[in-house]
């Protein structure tokens, strides 16, 4: 187990350059690329002194390398600056923190849908290779990937929300007064923890369509990943050996083989997490889900440059930490791997 600890340390250290590159990239995009975020954030015709003042408070009047140094220094202290508009002077970090649980809740629920649908269908397709079901599922994987996630969401809203009236189509909960006591910030979990059944039911109803949308969007990728992994595993000797021992086919495929296939799938989840976040941004906008993605898009319309920068940096940190987490998980699950 000591070697696992060492691996953890090394892996964590390896994440640092990646975070550094991403953070630098955000800086380059937002400050060095042509286009002035401040000018575009202010109504045309504003007095030059006003613009200069804002530039000064943001430190944009300093030389670039000083800006870059300040930027990194602030990030080290988790200081994401203060907002410009619609209200000036609020802490960006605090606002992001408030929006984060909604995104987390959606992402987890979406991941759950994906895991159930994608992995299940992928395993089934591999098991029944070259059957009609296999070809249909492969085609499903391609088609679902080609469907824009926000359009999928709109169609669900139309069918299940407007026509059938089964689910609400916007927000996380019917009224803020109904929201459960803040523990984790995930409404479904908090309402469950506090035994608030009305809020639980309501937040689950609100979560259903966005989670289904996001989950199905990603499921195509997982059908393919699971299928190709399963095909490789099913060709391995130990699968043949298990069959030769008379182990029932179902057990061989869904216990022995699938368990082995899941390990590489977990690592690939790391890369798919980026896709999940991108999907979440669009899903949040579709369902007026008050998460980080909607926050980012909303602040873009306000041209609130510090919030944009903060949100993008947080997304970068999320990606880096999830990829770290997944690798650690992988090392922990697979008995063969000890670094």
């Amino acid at each position: 187990m000591r070697s696992l600890g060492r691996y953890l340390l090394i892996r964590t250290l390896l994440t640092i350059p990646m975070i550094f590159v991403l953070v630098t990239l955000v800086f380059l995009i937002l400050r060095v690329m042509p286009g002035d975020p401040v000018k575009s954030s202010i109504r045309p015709g504003a007095p030059q002194e006003y613009i200069d003042e804002i530039r000064h408070t943001l430190g944009l009047d300093k030389p670039l390398y000083v800006q870059y140094g300040d930027y990194l220094w602030d990030l080290l202290h988790f200081d994401l600056g203060t907002t410009l508009s619609p209200v000036r002077g609020q802490s960006v970090a605090k606002q992001i923190w408030e929006h984060f649980p909604a995104t987390l809740e959606l992402a987890l629920a979406g991941m759950f849908v994906t895991a159930v649908v994608g992995v299940g269908m992928g395993a089934y397709a591999a098991h029944h290779r070259r059957s009609v079901a296999d070809y249909s599922l492969r085609l499903y994987a391609i088609i679902i990937y080609a469907i824009p996630v926000f359009w999928l969401g709109l169609m669900f809203q139309l069918i299940f929300g407007v026509w059938l009236r089964w689910f609400p189509i916007a927000g996380r909960i019917s009224s803020l007064a109904m929201a459960p006591k803040h523990i984790t910030g995930l409404y479904t979990l908090d309402s469950l923890l506090t035994g608030n059944w009305a809020a639980f039911k309501d937040s689950m109803m609100h979560l259903a369509l966005p989670a289904l949308t996001l989950g199905l969007y990603l499921s195509g990728v997982f059908v393919r990943l699971t299928r190709s992994n399963m095909l490789q595993i099913l060709k391995m000797d130990f699968v043949t050996a298990a069959r030769a021992r008379g182990i029932p086919e179902r057990t061989v495929v869904y216990r022995h083989a699938l368990k082995n296939a899941l390990i590489p799938i977990i690592t690939m989840m790391g890369l798919q997490f980026a896709l999940l976040l991108a999907g979440a941004v669009l899903t949040e906008s579709t369902f007026s889900w008050p998460g980080l993605g909607r926050f980012l898009v909303e602040r873009i319309t306000y041209r609130d440059f510090p919030s944009i920068q903060g949100a993008v940096v947080v997304f970068a940190l999320l990606v880096a930490s999830v990829s770290l987490l997944v690798d650690v998980l992988y090392a922990w699950i697979d008995p063969r791997i000890r670094y």
Binding site: D237, F238, A241, A244, G246, I247, K259, P335, R336
Partner: peptide, 19 residues
């Protein structure tokens, strides 16, 4: 299979379930 006829495979490194 396994009960009356049993099989031993070529490569012992791969013929057991690693998990």
């Amino acid at each position: 299979r396994g009960r009356h006829i049993s099989m031993v495979f070529q490569d012992p490194m791969t013929s057991l379930n690693p998990l």
